[in-house]
Amino acid sequence: MDKTHANSTCSNRPDLRGEINWIPFDAAAFVGSSLRFVSGDPEGNRFRVSYYLDSTQHLKAKVWFGPETEGPPGHAHGGAMAAVVDEVLGLAAWAAGYSIVVGNLSVSFRNMLPLHKVVSVETKVVSAEGRKIMVHGRIYCEKTTYAVGECLCITIQPKNINIR
């Protein structure tokens, strides 16, 4: 990728290429079809998402918020932003090796996100204690943060099998 692209991470066209040190991550192949809600339609008018791992193996995403995510005129709905935070933070736990479900999600909105904008999402698994995995992340573009999130994930227990 050329340096010009690396400096144009916030274009208004749906260019979902990652940064120079990001490695593509095939999320759908990793966790299956459970990613249908946010990243299930790569050509749709709601969301378009590409996933990556950075050099420290933290999950990153590039997300385009299309016209079907509109809330306030010309801007993404808070629920659309929260859905992205939910998917990306939950997937970050899976990418880190934890089979989880989201137990609690907290999203704080910092700025209105214009439609047709490509933004980045960064994540970090900040703790793992017993079955509880805490993941933090944010939706941002350059110096502007649109939303921050904290996700308490609970590891999935294997089903008990009764053999008679």
Rank of each mutant, 00 (worst) to 15 (best):
W22H: 13
I23C: 03
P24Y: 08
P24W: 04
P24M: 11
D26I: 14
A28E: 12
A28P: 14
F30P: 10
V31Y: 07
G32P: 14
G32D: 04
S33P: 12
S34Q: 13
L35K: 07
R36T: 15
R36H: 15
R36C: 12
F37Q: 12
F37S: 09
V38A: 05
V38N: 08
V38S: 07
S39I: 06
S39A: 14
G40P: 11
D41W: 13
P42M: 07
P42D: 02
P42R: 15
R46Y: 08
R46K: 11
R48C: 07
R48N: 03
R48A: 09
V49F: 01
S50A: 10
Y51I: 02
Y52K: 08
S55C: 06
Q57F: 08
L59F: 15
K60H: 10
K60Y: 11
A61G: 06
A61M: 07
A61K: 02
K62N: 10
K62E: 10
V63E: 00
F65T: 04
P67A: 02
E68M: 10
T69S: 09
E70P: 06
G71K: 09
P72W: 09
P73I: 00
G74D: 07
H75L: 01
A76P: 09
A76W: 01
H77M: 05
G79L: 02
A80E: 03
A80W: 00
A80N: 06
M81E: 10
M81P: 03
A82Q: 08
A82R: 09
V85G: 13
D86L: 01
D86A: 02
D86T: 14
D86K: 08
D86Y: 04
E87G: 05
V88T: 13
L89I: 14
G90A: 05
L91Y: 14
A92S: 12
A92D: 06
A93Q: 01
A93G: 03
A93I: 10
W94M: 14
A95G: 14
A95M: 09
A95S: 11
A96V: 14
A96I: 12
A96H: 13
G97A: 04
G97V: 04
S99N: 14
S99L: 04
I100V: 09
V101D: 00
V101H: 00
V102Q: 01
V102P: 02
G103N: 09
G103Q: 04
N104F: 11
N104D: 11
L105M: 03
S106L: 11
V107D: 12
S108M: 07
F109Q: 11
F109K: 15
N111M: 01
M112C: 06
M112I: 13
M112T: 15
L113C: 06
L113I: 15
L113M: 08
P114V: 00
L115T: 03
L115P: 09
L115K: 02
H116M: 05
K117I: 12
V118C: 02
S120K: 14
E122K: 05
K124V: 07
V125A: 05
V125C: 06
V125S: 06
S127G: 11
A128I: 04
A128G: 11
E129H: 07
E129D: 10
R131Y: 01
R131A: 13
K132Y: 08
M134E: 12
V135Y: 00
V135N: 00
H136E: 15
H136G: 08
H136P: 10
E142A: 13
E142C: 12
K143T: 11
K143A: 13
K143F: 15
T144C: 00
Y146E: 02
Y146N: 14
V148L: 10
G149Q: 07
E150I: 06
E150P: 12
